[in-house]
Design a binder for these strands. Structure first.
Length: 265
DNA sequence: GGAGATGTTTCAAG
DNA sequence: GCTTGAAACATCTC
């Protein structure tokens, strides 16, 4: 499930491990999540170190251990769990970090997630990261420039570009377009400047609210959002009750309201 | 049994 | 060289 706010929530699950030493690292060495950093490297790189930092940028997480950094991406089905010290890993628990008193678990059935290992200093994958969409660095001007560059893309695929919108995923993109009243297949280049500004505003509002509701409290968004209605067959638009449409844009299933988000032509 | 699932990378085509 | 779109990745659920 991990998009911006879910990533923040999962990162928080490992907070109780801050300040504690890693006593053991258990891995499923052949799991695909070790394709960038082998299980042996990760075990050797983390054992004996104290976790002292947790950072997230978009969908990317970083756990600092002093002289080593563990980078973690949850992919499509990854999650982080906090378990007790004697926890016995289950089938899809590919990484278990043991500390005195707890186990930090990375579970990922589809294994689209990935781990990285780097030394001390600011990790490379963070240095090249774009500004967070809720930060001051995410400006209307930057968005306008990016929209000019990708004028041929449908709005839905546009919003999924992590180089500009780190953390936005399938459901957030749908939520943003639905709130702004945009047809997901609309080409970016046909939008007026005022419409680009609307998108900018909705990106920030959806992201801030999601971080507060999901990221901080672990709750689900309320019924007034598209979120709880979007996957149910026959799900209805919370604004006007119209039955939602489902269609692929940019290879991703998209839920949208045929009346609130009617195509322009 | 088949389709599809809240992601990213890679490669082909325009 | 740039952008866009589709396939591939692995497993589970409906």
């Amino acid at each position: 499930m991990p998009e911006l706010a879910e990533v923040a929530w999962f990162a928080k699950q490992w907070n109780p491990g801050l300040g504690f030493e890693v006593t053991e690292v258990r891995c499923h060495p052949r799991a695909r999540i070790y394709r960038l950093a082998s299980a042996t490297r990760i075990q050797g790189g983390l054992t004996g170190l104290r976790m002292n930092k947790i950072l997230t940028r978009g969908k990317q997480m970083t756990f600092g251990f002093g002289k080593a950094h563990l980078g973690l991406h949850l992919g499509m089905t990854g999650s982080l769990l906090l378990k007790d010290a004697g926890y016995i890993p289950e089938r899809h628990d590919h990484l278990v970090i043991r500390q005195s008193g707890r186990s930090l678990v990375f579970r990922d059935p589809r294994m689209f997630g990935v781990l990285r290992l780097e030394g001390s200093g600011h990790p490379q994958w963070l240095r090249s990261a774009p500004p967070e969409v809720v930060s001051d660095g995410f400006t209307k001007v930057a968005l306008e420039g990016y929209a000019r560059r990708r004028g041929g893309a449908p709005l839905k695929s546009f919003l999924l570009q992590q180089e500009m919108f780190p953390g936005i995923g399938n459901w957030m993109a749908d939520e943003i377009l639905w709130r702004g009243g945009f047809y997901p297949g609309e080409r970016v280049g046909t939008l007026e400047p005022s419409q680009i500004e609307t998108i900018w505003r909705e990106i920030r509002q959806v992201s801030r609210a999601a971080l507060s509701i999901i990221g901080s409290r672990g709750d689900d968004p309320p019924k007034s959002w598209l979120f709880p209605h979007r996957w149910r067959p026959g799900g209805k638009c919370p604004k006007d009750g119209a039955v939602l449409c489902r269609q692929k844009f940019g290879g991703r299933t998209t839920a949208w309201c045929p009346t609130c988000q009617a195509p322009q032509s």
